[in-house]
């Protein structure tokens, strides 16, 4: 995962709407032509379908354990069974739901608040910007996983706490990027002319500037999504995930990793592979989006 430098600024003269649409269409065409994007999308899609219809896809119920303990992968149980005889394949499929509910929610919320904050900081400037910048900086100093653990310890182990903490810690990162982009935009002619037309600040910020900084925002969203998946999986590995018997991937790895040594590798390998494949797919998408956006 790469945290791109914060200086992605979309330089622009005064773009008119149709030009922008055209540029967007062109970018989209370029992105679609990248194999990494297509592969990433395909993997992601598989997990999304699993998350939406786990019980339809899974051959067994993820909590049904009377199928024989610790069976190695077979035709009936492609990923084997765990120590209580639950089908690992079905649990991996069902486990997609937890992470795909929490991680995107955290990423979207983080980006949403980040965009609002960044726009305000970049456009209003002045004291607000100075104070907010300082707060943003100190938030950046907070290690996400550590603060996640701290929050779960003091506030309880619910999905909302995890979403809230991850979103709160992503907000300043996004805000910083958006602020930089807005700073470059606000000096451009189209903003000045909108001001002269007497448009309201809100209108200028969200109708004029926002469409022009969508590039970095989209990049942020995809990159943050990758981080969110990674962070949520790590938190649940560390015991701050949804409680059992939820088939959450991180908890599955953490419950089972010591069993690798007794030869039951499938109990850890498949949920771990699921985490890795999801992070890789999101990062492949993020990477493609980022390179196309930066090139344009």
């Amino acid at each position: 995962m790469t945290d791109h430098p914060s200086s992605i600024v979309v330089p622009g003269q005064m773009p008119d709407v149709s030009e922008r649409k055209q540029a967007r269409r062109e970018n989209w065409r370029l992105i679609r032509r990248r194999p990494a994007f297509l592969i990433g999308m395909a993997i992601l899609l598989v997990w999304v379908v699993c998350a939406l219809f786990p019980l339809t896809i899974a051959p067994h119920h993820p909590l049904d354990f009377r199928t024989g303990l610790n069976q190695s992968p077979s035709w009936d149980h492609p990923f084997g069974t765990d120590q209580t005889g639950r089908d690992v394949f079905s649990r991996v499929i069902a486990g997609a739901r937890d992470i795909l509910r929490i991680a995107p929610a955290a990423a979207v919320l983080g980006v949403l608040f980040g965009v609002i904050l960044g726009m305000l900081m970049g456009y209003i400037r002045g004291w607000f910007d100075i104070i907010a910048s300082r707060i943003v900086e100190s938030f950046l100093a907070l290690p996400v996983v550590l603060v996640g653990l701290l929050a779960v310890t003091t506030m309880g182990n619910s999905a909302w706490v995890v979403i809230g903490v991850v979103a709160a810690l992503f907000t300043p990162i996004v805000a910083r990027t958006v602020r930089a982009a807005v700073l470059a935009e606000r000096e451009l002619d189209y903003v000045t002319s909108a001001k002269l037309r007497g448009e309201s600040t809100m209108f200028i910020m969200f109708r004029e500037i926002l469409p022009n900084v969508m590039g970095p925002i989209v990049v942020e969203l995809t990159v943050r999504l990758g981080y969110a998946v990674f962070t949520v999986a790590t938190l649940s590995f560390l015991g701050a995930g949804p409680p059992p018997p939820s088939p959450d991937w991180g908890s599955q790895v953490s419950d089972n990793y010591s069993s690798i040594v007794s030869g039951f590798w499938w109990r850890t390998f498949f949920p771990a592979g699921a985490i890795a494949s999801l992070v890789i797919s999101v990062n492949m998408i993020a990477d493609s989006v980022q390179s196309v956006m930066e090139a344009s």
């Binding site: 909590l63 049904d64 354990f65 009377r66 209580t84 309880g156 182990n157 409680p243 059992p244 018997p245 939820s246």
Partner: peptide, 26 residues
């Protein structure tokens, strides 16, 4: 949690419908 899961399925056989609410110890 596993004990509860197994009890849940055993009690299903006497017609009881048990929903599990597994929560962190705290």
């Amino acid at each position: 949690p596993q004990l509860a899961e197994l009890m849940q399925s055993q009690l299903k056989e006497i017609g009881m419908d048990v929903t599990l609410n597994v929560i962190s110890t705290d």
